[in-house]
């Protein structure tokens, strides 16, 4: 007899425990304001990442198409996995002196681990992280980028 009572009460206890869980779910059905789901990509316009977000490395250019990179290769050395390649060239200055400037700032997004070490190592603050996170492309070669824009040159006064 005792065993039967124990058995039946355990069934009720079990049922109660199930409803306890269901109550939580029920609470959220009746309180849609507490739901935090975002609709991506519908909210693309309003979705803003934090300023610190490490999206990808970019070389900042000002409105006169000038950048701050002197081609010192400190970022290339700091990078743990060779995602950055600085290809420099020598150009002749108007006063006849030769000067080393960057020819290509090659950045392999596919290898980058977003560790931020390159940004920290740059003595002239030429590079920064952009907040762009939609990196998907159809071909891997598109992930190798040349960061300096065509025709860009070194900003006055940066050395």
């Amino acid at each position: 007899m005792k065993a039967i009572i124990k058995y039946i009460s355990s069934i009720f206890k079990a049922l109660k425990s199930l409803f306890r869980g269901m109550a939580v779910t029920g609470h959220y059905i009746s309180h849609p304001k507490e739901i935090i789901t975002q609709q991506y990509p519908e909210n693309r316009e309003t979705l803003k990442m934090f300023d610190m977000f490490r999206g990808e490395v970019v070389l900042t250019h000002n409105e006169r198409n000038e950048h701050r990179c002197t081609g010192c290769s400190a970022c290339e050395v700091a990078c743990p996995n060779g995602s950055i390649e600085i290809i420099s060239k020598r150009i002749e200055m108007p006063d006849g002196k030769k000067k080393k400037v960057i020819d290509k700032f090659v950045y392999h997004l596919s290898m980058c681990t977003f560790c931020n070490l390159c940004i920290l190592s740059c003595p002239t603050d030429a590079i920064k992280m952009s907040q762009d996170f939609e990196h998907a492309v159809f071909d891997r070669s598109q992930l190798t980028k040349v960061l300096n824009k065509t025709g860009s040159k070194l900003m006055e006064g940066v050395r």
């Binding site: 610190m52 977000f53 490490r54 977003f114 560790c115 931020n116």
Partner: peptide
Amino acid sequence: FEETCGARLTMN
């Protein structure tokens, strides 16, 4: 994390 250090998971 994202606001303070910029990464969500692999924080460094």
